[in-house]
C-alpha cells in the first residue's frame, strides 16, 4: 500500500524552501532515511529551479504541483508544471576545471538530478509537463 501526498505552490524561487520542507516532513513521517530524503530534496530543488527559471521564462509564474508517493520499496516524486516544456536530458559531468578557467559554470543541477535519482522520466502532455523522479528506499538494517 502506498501513501500519497500533494502540495501546490506558485512557481517562484521563494517557494523552494516550502517545497523542500514538504518533502522532508512527509518522508520523515513515512520513515525514509535522512540520506534518501536529502537526495530527494536536492533533485526536487534543482528540477523546480529549472522549471521556474526556464519553463516559466517570459510567462507569468504559474503553478508547481508536487505529488509524492511512498511505498515499501520506493519514493516517487512527480513534479507538474504548465510552462514551456523543458525536457531534462542526461548531462555529462560538469567540467570543474573549465569553470575555474572562466568558462560558464552550469550543468550541475541536471547532473545532480540524474546522479542521485534511480530513474528520471519526463512527459509533456496537454495536461501539463510532468517530471517523474524515482528513488529506491534504502533497505532497513536489521540488528543481528
Amino acid at each position: 500500500m502506498s501513501q500519497k501526498f500533494r502540495i501546490a505552490r506558485a512557481a517562484e524561487l521563494e517557494s523552494l524552501g516550502v517545497l523542500r520542507d514538504f518533502i522532508h516532513d512527509q518522508c520523515a513521517r513515512a520513515g525514509i532515511d535522512d540520506a534518501t530524503t536529502y537526495e530527494l530534496k536536492l533533485a526536487a530543488d534543482e528540477a523546480c529551479t529549472n522549471i521556474i527559471t526556464h519553463g516559466y521564462a517570459q510567462m507569468n509564474p504559474g503553478s508547481l504541483i508536487l505529488d509524492l508517493e511512498i511505498d515499501a520499496h520506493q519514493v516517487v516524486l512527480r513534479i507538474t508544471d504548465f510552462g514551456h516544456p523543458f525536457e531534462p536530458s542526461e548531462p555529462i559531468a560538469p567540467d570543474v576545471q573549465a569553470a575555474l578557467d572562466d568558462q560558464p559554470t552550469s550543468g550541475f543541477g541536471l547532473f545532480f538530478i540524474y546522479s542521485v535519482m534511480d530513474a528520471v522520466d519526463y512527459r509533456a502532455t496537454e495536461e501539463g509537463n510532468c517530471l517523474m523522479l524515482t528513488k529506491r528506499r534504502a533497505p532497513k538494517v536489521v540488528p543481528v
Binding site: 523542500r20 530534496k41 536536492l42 530543488d45 534543482e46 529551479t49 575555474l100 559554470t105 550541475f108 543541477g109
Partner: peptide, 12 residues
C-alpha cells in the same frame, strides 16, 4: 542544505 546555486557561488 546547499543546491548547485550555492556551489556556483563558491566556485565563482
Amino acid at each position: 542544505f546547499m543546491s548547485s546555486a550555492g556551489l556556483r557561488a563558491l566556485l565563482s
